[in-house]
Every structure is written in C-alpha cells, then in structure tokens.
Design a protein around this nucleic acid. Structure first.
Lengths: 202, 202
DNA sequence: CCCCTTCGATACCGATCGGTACGGATGTGC
DNA sequence: GCACATCCGTACCGATCGGTATCGAAGGGG
C-alpha cells in the first residue's frame, strides 16, 4: 500500500479543498443541483471556475463529492443511530436526528439527500438516480438493523423489517420536505414522536 | 352577471387548451419546474412557443395553471377525503388517496405539489413558495377538519388538530418522495397503514 | 538557478435558456 | 366582401448555461 498522494508538485493550491466543499454542500442543499449555477458555486466557494474544475472535475462530480461529505458530516447521526441497543431507540434516534439536522439554525432547512434533485430534466437524471440510491442505501441499512432486532427477539417475529425501514425513511423524507417548507423544529419533533407511536411493541 | 367570455373574435385557437394544460401537468410533474424546458413543454403540448405564451402568459403562469388543474383533477380525492364522517376515515382516505395518486400507472410517480419545485435557484423562488403555500393550504384544511372532529367529540378533547394535520401532510410528503424513488403501490399502502396506526383513538 | 508542474484569472466557447417580433393564415362582424 | 381580431409558425433576441483555452504566477526538485 503506497501513499495515495505521493508528493505535492507544482504550485500549491491556494484554497482549502474541504472548506470549499463545505460551501458547495450549502449551495446544493438550498438550491438543488439544477438550481445551483456555477456562478452560485464559485462565488460561495470563493474560487474561480477553472479552479473548481481542476479540483473537482465537473459540476456533477462536485455534487457527488458534496453528497459524500454531507453524508459523513452532517448526517453522521444516522450511523450512530444504527448502533442504538434497541430497534425503538434506533427509530427514535433516526427521526430525532432527522428533525435536528433538517432544522439547524444557520444551515439550509431540510435534507440534501431529498432536496438535491427530486425531479429533474433529462440531463440531471444521473444525479437524481444517485440520490435515489442514497436514500435506498439508508433503507437497506435500516432493514438489516431491524432484521437483526427480529433475530435478537427485540421485535416480534412477525415483523417485516423492510416495511419498518421504508416507513422510517418515508417519515424522514416528509420531515425534510416540511422543514424546507418552513415548519419549526418543535413542530417536527412532535410529528416525529407521533410517528414513533406506531412502533411495534413487544 | 354577464358572460366572462363574451364572443370569440379572430382566428379560433387550433388546439384544446385544457388538453394542452394536461400535457403540461405531466411535464412539470416528472421534471419539475426548473427541469422542464420550453422545448419539453411545447413538444409535449403539441403547440408552438408563441402559442404557449399567448394562451398561458409565461412558463411561470403556465405552471400555476397546471398546478390548479392538477389540484382540481388528480388530487380531487383530497376534497372528498375531507367529507368523510370521522377523523380516522379522513386520515385513511387522505393517505390511501395519496398513495394511489402517487403510484398510478401511466402517470409520473409522486406528487406535483412536492416534486414541482422543492429546492430551486433564486429565479424560481416564487414557484417554490407557491408550492409551499399549496401544501400549507392542505394542512389548513385538515386542521379545520380535525378541529371540527374535536368539537364533535370524534377526537379526544386534548387533541392538537394542527399537529395531526401536519403529521398527515408529512407522511404524504414522504410517500410522494418514496413513490418518485420507485417504491411500489403495495409497499406504500403498507407504509400508509402503519402511519395510520398511531391515529388517536377515542 | 533553472526547469517543470500545478496553480489562479481572464476571457472565451457553443449550446441552451426563457421570451418575442413579424408576417401570413383564418376565422367573425358588418 | 371587406375590415378586423386573433391565431400559427419561423426565425430571432439577449442572457445564461456548463465547460475550457490560454497565460502569467508560484512553488518544489535537480
């Protein structure tokens, strides 16, 4: 295993690439992939257009990298939620985390994974599909976690783990949309708790 | 009260304006406001660009008229749901209607009111805000209906009608997103029924 | 010190965006 | 049948889209 970034050659980059990526996340988050123009992006990132292309490849590549960074950063609550001891605690942590992430002051309302590219023109279809896959992956993680809960006797044997996972993801999607529509954190917390009321009890 | 369309003068329109509007609904529904180009629209509507502008004003005006037609047509289940005798029947009719409308074969998956313009650039902000208002109006209707149910003793006196309305709208939003992601009608019906499981019982 | 590589900035590319000027066609009212 | 109003289609508008050629600047390796 050799180093992946062997030796820096030539003139060093004058901006922090991760910080620029963070700024890009905010732009895509609030305007969506199609709504975010290169002028929007370069202005927010504080770099010129060619710098963006050298560092990130294309607008589409930049979006994928932004989504990756968003996943590892602002939605890391999701990975932590999966580690909760019981299925009920997992569900609660997921929905509460969703509400908090979707209504954090100073950040765009909602969720990049939902708002980024829901309905698009033909050109942006790959981005749309990538977000579908992103959400699908969350469902897959939850499904495995709830199957494990069934196996461990933490959920009734008759439980359909996939249905529970899809249910959670659906409510989370709805919370993201409502947050983007201006619903407040306390309101959405109540909604989340109401949704958790139908969680199967042993 | 005089006629609002007094007498047709000049060369008559060569296309059916409502049929053209129906086609426009489909384009906006599947591609969103920003993703739908004028070429997409004119091709689907079977009319030329100036004909579109003379008949509908602008792309933005066309969207508003398409949304209106969508509301009166494909989401008319909503108005019928409000007329159900009990709050539980209202909730069931709303969510089942949402699932069916969002997964009708031959029509785009999801809901125009959610997919049309969720995150947009600055130019399309009025459209985004109009859809927020559209969803908000649904919440307001539901809130009034559930307040009425509380007054009639159909819901516990401690019930928060607005919370129930927001909850329903949130689940409906989520269903629309999941439908647009490819979830099937049977899957989403199960999700809807699960969501109805936490409905307050007398 | 010089070379080489990568950087940043300006200025530009063709394509597409939403929107419209114009002229010929087609209908009604007089 | 003539005038007028509205339609349709072509061809076009400036602006913006995503993306890039080019060139001087800035750093490390020999």
């Amino acid at each position: 295993m050799f180093s992946t970034t062997p030796v820096p050659r030539g003139r060093p980059r004058a901006f922090d690439i991760d910080e620029a990526l963070d700024r890009a996340v905010l732009v895509f988050w609030s305007k969506g992939f199609e709504g975010a123009s290169l002028d929007d992006l370069t202005e927010a990132m504080g770099i010129s257009r060619p710098s963006l292309y050298r560092a990130f490849g294309s607008k589409e590549d930049l979006f994928y990298k932004a989504l990756e960074r968003y996943t590892e950063g602002l939605t890391s609550y999701f990975a932590r939620a999966l580690a909760e001891p019981t299925s009920g605690a997992v569900a609660t942590a997921v929905l509460h985390g969703t509400v908090e992430a979707a209504t954090t002051p100073g950040l765009p309302a909602g969720c990049l994974g939902v708002l980024g590219a829901l309905a698009t023109g033909d050109e942006s279809r790959p981005v749309r599909d990538a977000l579908i896959a992103w959400r699908e992956e969350g469902i897959a993680h939850l499904t495995r976690r709830f199957q494990q809960a069934v196996d461990a006797g933490d959920l009734p044997p008759s439980t359909d783990p996939h249905l529970l996972a899809l249910y959670l993801r659906t409510v989370a999607n709805g919370i993201a949309v409502q947050a983007a529509s201006g619903s407040s954190r306390p309101e959405l917390l109540q909604v989340a708790n109401l949704a958790l009321g139908s969680w199967p009890k042993l």
